[in-house]
Design a protein around this nucleic acid. Structure first.
Length: 653
DNA sequence: TAAGTCACG
DNA sequence: ACGTACGTGACTTAT
């Protein structure tokens, strides 16, 4: 599959038909499904009449595997799963593999089970030698449940998995992003079957054993079932996607190709200057000790500065500071907002604020990141969760590279440790004000569209409208207020929330909101329409048709219902932005491949792409990436992209 | 394991 | 009268 062929609009039927034939989709509905549509017809692919009838084999001999390889080569689509030594995709080694070509029929290939009395097995090397031609053949279509993981495992053994046609994780995510997507949940929801779970096979907690110590017969029952059920779940889910044109687009033209891009980003990793971070850790540790001593002295007693409970005792009981707000459980809050207010009168609160900032940086970043460097590659490899965020965004974990500090000077020193390798530069390209632009596009508010078309500073423009000034008369404080209002709009704010954020009377905040909606009436209409749509259909959509379900939109609990309404307002904007940057990643990766460039995509931070470019490619990359990112969709507003480069991530901003 | 807090967009 | 800005992941403390 060539990535560049997947840049199509959701309603380009001819190209969509082409796409469908490439993915081998079986049918194409005349109309997109409505939410009231009946459940889709049964899968056209073969499913055994009796779902309980299963024929699972365990492959011990080379002849057994050779017979299966023949079937794999001949099959239209093969469900495939790996069993491994670790959940860390970059560390995991193969213990076994399973395959299914037909619902109810599957094989487990034990390779490296290692316990007293374990049966003889083929071994990883011999098995991969036999399987490699199939695994690496783009034309042999494979299916998995979170197959990005299996692709890493195979890559750890020098095998380049090709021909990934489907992933049940992504199918489920596109259909119901809010639901669980683990195998057990999918089997229960879509097949009405109870599965053997990983925990049941390996145990939990201290009793957990590594998969290589799991009895082969038991492992076979588990692993073969996984492959079997993956295929059956696919047969259940793909028709549902095919019945809704836009969902099929999101799945086939956004999520599946993005999956491959994410694999490469994770694999390539990012270079950090571990020594620099370690030196910083030492420095921060010294500062923490100093602040701790100062705070203990000020408090008149030692206490654990990391314990909100102990802080509350000192602050609110011993010192009699006012309780400004409470946590959800009713305890007095000591969060940043509270400490900032208390700091006006109490030096101890300021000390704690300083301590919190430093300890956060140390414990989460400067201590941890150096330990996350992969010894083989010398780089840090995050894992991007592609089915985690309900809105369509990615999530980054182990380590999270999407929350690296940037807002404070001390924090930005951590960004300086994200560096380019010798002869390369870091390039950062981010969408400017993308969610507000999407709000303008969806609401079609003339005033907002005009401001973006004119290239105005959007917060300044908002301030001019809300406060009745000319653009040049807007004060910096008015602009700051307008910026808060703009963020609030994206989050579905209330007058109460705005007042709290700006430290105003609620009535004043309400007046600002009223003024905003007078000047941008189509935005007000959009907000109301979105609430209505959410109530009527139970979901909202992004510009590309990604669906976000809101199970609590009709809740009788006003707090829950209100939360669902705010999520409904936010989701089209956050989700469309997520769609756009995924399309951009696909476009960028396609361009780099076509042009045979060595530049790597190394990070995605929601509205920003970070690349590592050889010096010889830097000029081309700096020129082309913004064009590619801007060009992924033609909205009613320009998509502006800012680009920068430098020796480290901080300098590239 | 839950709660509280805080890093990011 | 009530609760009150969207979406994440990770760390520490306390149970």
């Amino acid at each position: 599959m060539k990535l560049e062929e997947l840049k199509l609009g959701p309603r380009d039927e001819k190209q969509l038909a082409e796409l469908i034939s490439r993915f081998g989709f079986k049918s194409w509905p005349k109309e997109a499904a409505r939410d009231t549509a009946p459940p889709p017809a049964a899968s056209p692919l073969p499913v055994r009449a009796d779902p309980e009838e299963r024929r699972y084999e365990t492959l011990f001999e080379e002849a057994d595997l050779a017979r299966w390889v023949k079937d794999l080569e001949a099959a239209e689509l093969v469900a495939f799963d790996t069993e491994t030594t670790s959940l860390d995709p970059m560390q995991a080694r193969l213990v076994g593999m399973s395959f299914s070509v037909l619902a109810g029929r599957a094989a487990y290939l034990p390779l490296a089970h290692n316990y007293a009395g374990a049966p003889g097995q083929l071994g990883v090397e011999r098995a991969l030698a036999l399987l490699k031609p199939w695994l690496e053949n783009e034309a042999r279509r494979k299916l998995g449940q979170n197959i990005k993981y299996d692709q890493h495992v195979l890559a750890n053994h020098g095998v380049a998995l090709r021909g990934v046609a489907h992933d049940t994780l992504l199918e489920s995510y596109v259909l119901e992003s809010h639901a669980r997507h683990d195998m057990d949940s999918l089997a229960t929801r879509h097949l009405g079957l109870k599965t053997l779970t990983y925990d049941e096979v390996t145990g939990t907690g201290v009793g957990r054993i590594p998969f290589e110590q799991v009895d082969v017969a038991r492992a076979a029952a588990y692993a073969a079932e996984d492959a079997d059920l993956t295929l059956r779940i696919h047969h259940a889910l793909l028709p549902k996607l095919e019945a809704a044109e836009k969902l099929l687009y999101v799945y086939g033209s956004i999520e599946l190709p993005a999956r491959e891009v994410l694999f490469r980003m994770e694999r390539d990793g990012v270079l950090i200057d571990a020594a620099q971070l370690e030196a910083m850790s030492h420095e921060l540790g010294q500062k923490m000790l100093e602040l701790e001593n100062k705070a203990h002295k000020e408090a008149g007693q030692p206490f654990n500065l990391g314990s909100p409970k102990q802080i509350a005792e000192i602050f609110f009981e011993k010192k009699g500071m006012p309780v400004i707000k409470k946590t959800p459980s009713g305890a007095p809050s000591t969060d940043e907002d509270v400490l900032e207010r208390l700091a006006l009168d109490h030096p101890l609160a300021k000390m704690l604020l300083d301590y919190r900032e430093i300890s956060k940086l140390k414990s989460t970043y400067t201590d941890k990141l150096p330990k996350m460097v992969n010894p083989r590659t010398g780089r840090v490899h995050t894992n991007y969760g592609q089915a985690t965020a309900v809105t369509g965004r990615l999530a980054s974990n182990d380590p999270n590279l999407q929350n690296i500090p940037v807002r404070t000077p001390e924090g930005r020193r951590i960004r300086e440790a994200f560096v380019a390798s010798r002869g390369n530069a870091i390039v950062s390209a981010d969408y400017s004000q993308v969610e507000l632009r999407i709000m303008a596009h969806i609401s079609e508010d003339e005033n907002l569209l005009r401001a973006f078309a004119a290239g105005e500073d959007i917060h300044r423009a908002t301030a001019a409208e809300v406060f009745g000034r000319s653009l040049r008369d807007v004060t910096s404080e008015e602009r700051r207020y307008a910026k808060v209002i703009n963020f609030g709009l994206i989050y579905g704010m209330s007058a109460f929330g705005l007042a709290q954020q700006l430290g105003l009377e609620r009535a004043t905040a309400q007046a600002y909101i009223a003024s905003y909606f007078t000047r941008y009436p189509a935005v007000a209409k959009y907000m109301e329409e979105t609430r209505k749509t959410a109530r009527e259909r139970g979901y909202v959509e992004t510009v590309f048709g990604r669906r976000l379900w809101l199970p609590e939109i009709k809740s009788s609990n006003p707090a829950r219902r209100g939360g669902a309404e705010r999520a409904a307002i936010n989701a089209p904007m956050q989700g469309t932005a997520a769609d756009l940057i995924k399309l951009a990643m696909i476009a960028v990766r396609g361009w780099l491949d076509r042009e045979r460039l060595s530049t790597k995509l190394i990070m995605q931070v929601h509205d920003e792409l970070v690349l590592e470019a050889p010096d010889a490619e830097l000029d081309r990359v700096r020129a082309e990436i913004p064009e590619l990112m801007s060009g992924v969709a033609k909205l009613k507003v320009p998509l502006v992209v800012d680009v920068g480069s430098g020796q480290n991530w901080e300098k590239a901003h």
